[in-house]
Nucleic acid binder design. Structure first.
Lengths: 342, 342
DNA sequence: AAGGTTGATGAAACTAGTTACATCTGTCAA
DNA sequence: TTGACAGATGTAACTAGTTTCATCAACCTT
């Protein structure tokens, strides 16, 4: 067992390759970065050495010179809601096309946590950030301003925002939903929504409803954004003396929870009450009855955000805000208000 | 606008801090890494300079010396199934306690994609990998063997595996489910499962059923692991002349899809047919009827995997396999076979 | 008072790349 | 034949940290 037989010495580096190929380190570096300027047979010689030594350039050493770490961070409230999972899946897929990796961090909708995790991401060298919504702590804003790191807001459209936004118009989407119910003749509407505090998407959606009262009336119920939360909200609605002819949930998870909650109370959707969601999750199309909802293009949003961030990083030019269209998906959970026709 | 007034020069580095504090770079480095050996007032002097210059050590430069990049990679088939999303959420949370970041990559259950993404992760310096299941391509195995990177298999328990596994016994879990149905008097059972090809968890679950036929009989239906897939499977089952008295789905997403599929065909669960899942997703508790299932502790699995990997990385000692317990959750979707009692 | 030990710090080499600049060779025009 | 210039490659300095070794002062011992 001679010393030189030791199999797994360690990763080969540029100098090793240079020595093996009989060239200088600069030439090896050129082979890696601008192969065009290297003479053909030296190129081949070096490539052979690279292959033989199984050389892979160290990302860290690269990063130290170029400042490029080739990863970005995404901060989402939770992975438990399919809406974010789908968004991240699309984001990751598209980023990897540009050679960017994605570090995921969850914030639990806590602005302090968000600021902390954002700082960690920046400190370890993230080249860009994807965040959710437009409301953030002052420490967070300080951080972004100080480091001038490319940061894109998603799930929220606002072309006057400090950071570029790529998202849908939450207000308009909620209005679209409400209008649909009103057009079906519903007047007694209960709106079920997630915590408005600390969630600007929810607030924007609610503001749409306020603005568009459309000579109907509505009461609202706040609950946790989860199936459980929806189910509980349904129980509360049923126990109440106020009998709505339609329920509008400002997110599909909640709507599905409400559907289950109503079913377990023996209330039939849409016969007894129309039910409508907002998001358009895969489950909404399959549920029985299938859920009428407003489709928010989250996969598309993931792709657009990835493209915009990648471009921002490479060109240093801040992208424009992008508004993605939401559209009404009519399914089986809403019907015309029968009482009105009498 | 004198040159020295330029606000955002760039990130301060060790040399800047050293100069500002009037000490050598070595001392600053010591303040960062072993503050104990530095005299108290120099320590304070340096810390003051660090704070003033808003100095944050470059992760890349650190990595180049120590080889420590402080991130690991996780390869999951998809984020669309809540089971992986929940697993990752727990994994991320626990890893961050150890100062490790998580890079997420999805494989779409494609072993080639997995190998490619694993290589990318290793190349950019991942210190460890979390993977799903025990079946992987030979390139993948070569990569792990060559680089000797700490790699933990999850969602699968097998203490004879090449890599340490942290997961549940899929075979036993499926058996537990089947036994429950048989105990309820069900004999005509249809098993709905995801693609067995390329998915060892599914195969393990199926093997449990084969082994435990328990003087019942069962036919099986293969479908995509999604709500849609479950719904389609239900349609196929209904259209078939074979009338089961119970349906066992080897994952909860599929079970929920089957539930919807049956509902839309007007078939009542559990009156007409008992339905059972496996995973225990949040939705299963809320569905109507709530789904009997086998609980797989995915959040716990995420935590354990995080702890084990972090320890492996820091101690260089390969961890032991960990078997996590699965347990039966009886809910409303299964009842005693009435026909049997006649 | 001389010698030994410890504690604190600094100089410089080291990690693994990139890159500015220098050098050498060969071709082509004057 | 000489000078100009392009093309290919090498030398060495640079990135931002860590780490080894050397230095020096202060204290303790004999």
């Amino acid at each position: 067992m001679a010393r030189k037989d030791r199999v797994q010495k360690k990763r080969a580096n540029l100098r090793d390759v240079a020595k093996a190929a009989g060239v200088s380190v600069a030439t090896v570096s050129r082979v890696l970065n601008e192969p065009g300027v290297v003479k053909k047979d030296t190129l081949e010689k070096v490539q052979k050495a690279i292959a033989e030594l199984r050389f892979v350039p160290s990302a860290a050493a690269r990063a130290i010179n170029s400042g490029r770490t080739r990863f970005v961070g995404a901060l989402v409230p939770t992975l438990d809601n399919a809406i974010f999972a789908r968004f991240l899946a699309a984001l990751e897929r598209k980023l990897s096309e540009d050679g960017l990796s994605l570090i995921v961090a969850t914030t639990d909708s806590d602005l302090e946590v968000e600021a902390t995790k954002a700082k960690e991401l920046v400190d370890i060298g993230a080249e860009g950030l994807i965040i959710t919504g437009a409301t953030h702590s002052t420490e967070f804003h300080d951080l972004i301003e100080r480091t001038m790191i490319p940061t894109i807001i998603t799930s929220y459209f606002d072309d006057t925002s400090l950071f570029p936004t790529i998202g849908y118009d939450n207000k308009a989407a909620a209005q679209m939903a409400l209008r649909h119910l009103v057009e079906l003749g519903h007047r007694r509407i209960v709106v079920v929504h997630g915590p408005a505090h600390n969630n600007d998407r929810t607030r924007a959606r609610l503001s749409g409803l306020d603005a568009a009262h459309l000579n109907g009336e509505f009461t609202s119920v706040e609950t946790e954004i989860s199936l459980q939360g929806g189910s509980e909200a349904a129980a509360r609605i049923v126990s109440n003396s106020y009998k709505p002819d339609a329920i509008l949930c400002l997110s599909d998870v909640v709507a599905l929870g409400v559907l289950f909650g109503l079913q377990s109370e023996g209330i039939s959707v849409p016969k007894d009450v129309s039910l409508m969601g907002l998001d358009d999750l895969p489950s909404s199309a399959v549920a029985v009855p299938s859920l009428t909802t407003v489709h928010l293009p989250v996969s598309q949003m993931g792709e657009r955000a990835a493209v915009a961030l990648a471009r921002w990083i490479s060109t240093q030019k801040r992208p424009e805000a992008e508004k993605l269209g939401a559209r009404l998906i009519e399914r089986k959970s809403t019907i015309r208000n029968a009482a009105l026709d009498k």
